[in-house]
Design a protein around this nucleic acid. Structure first.
Length: 226
DNA sequence: AGCACA
């Protein structure tokens, strides 16, 4: 139940990378003293959308209007177990306290790999995924958007290498850390063949594997918690 | 094809 697909990462990590959202055009002072402030989540509904719904009319700073969303638990869309949880019902991993199981939305199963019931982890499974097939101009932010919803997501590290063939784009690969190998496996299954660029189906398909050398317990930063 | 960071 804890496995699968979930909303945002821990806000602490958003802090580390939170770029200024494009929706806020006004130059702002540093917000270093405001950990967890809503605007630091880096996840804003787009102005256009809200305008289309007629919600926004002069509603002031978007932050204040978005705040209720956060408190409502709308922020969590949690899929039912995506299948990999090998302990099944008995060894059910304790529900993460940060995940309200009763989000105010349809509790239907979101079908990521819902068909698979028991896919044993391959021996090489690790908690870090090695991802290639990324377009040369992709950003860490983009890649994070893809992986962040998965349970156990920790962080993504982009690496750019020069192409071996002259004239071709730089080769971008990345490493994505999860808390547990089984969680990495869920993401791997779900994103296999993922089309990075929806208009160019052939050229930008993600290829995922378990990393040969799992990253350092990346509990966000130099200090390891616990 | 191609596996970095501590």
């Amino acid at each position: 139940m804890a496995d699968g697909y979930w909303r945002y990462a821990d806000p602490r990590q958003q802090l580390a990378e939170a770029p200024t959202p494009a929706s806020l055009k006004r130059p702002r002072p540093e917000y270093g003293d405001m950990p967890g402030a809503p605007e630091m989540l880096g996840y804003h509904p787009r102005n256009e959308d809200r305008t289309a719904l007629g919600i926004i009319r002069d509603a002031g700073p978007i932050n204040s209007s978005y705040d209720p969303y956060l408190r409502n638990g709308l922020s969590s869309y949690v899929a039912a177990d995506a299948g990999r949880s090998i302990g099944g019902v008995s060894g059910r991993p304790v529900d993460d306290p940060r995940v309200p199981g009763h989000a105010g939305m349809d509790s239907r199963v979101i079908g990521y790999s819902s068909g698979r019931i028991e896919a044993p982890l391959p021996p090489e499974a690790s908690n870090t995924l090695f991802v290639e097939g990324l377009p040369a101009d992709c950003t860490r932010r983009e890649v994070s958007h893809i992986f962040r919803p998965f349970v156990g997501f920790q962080e993504v590290r982009l690496v750019t290498k020069d192409s071996r063939q002259p004239g071709r784009d730089a080769f971008v690969l990345c490493f994505v850390d999860f808390t547990r190998p089984s969680q990495a496996a869920v993401a791997l299954d779900a994103l296999r063949g993922y089309c990075f660029d929806e208009h160019d189906r052939e050229s930008a398909r993600l290829r995922l594997q378990f990393a040969r050398f799992p990253g350092p317990r990346s509990s966000a930063g130099p200090r390891s918690r616990r």
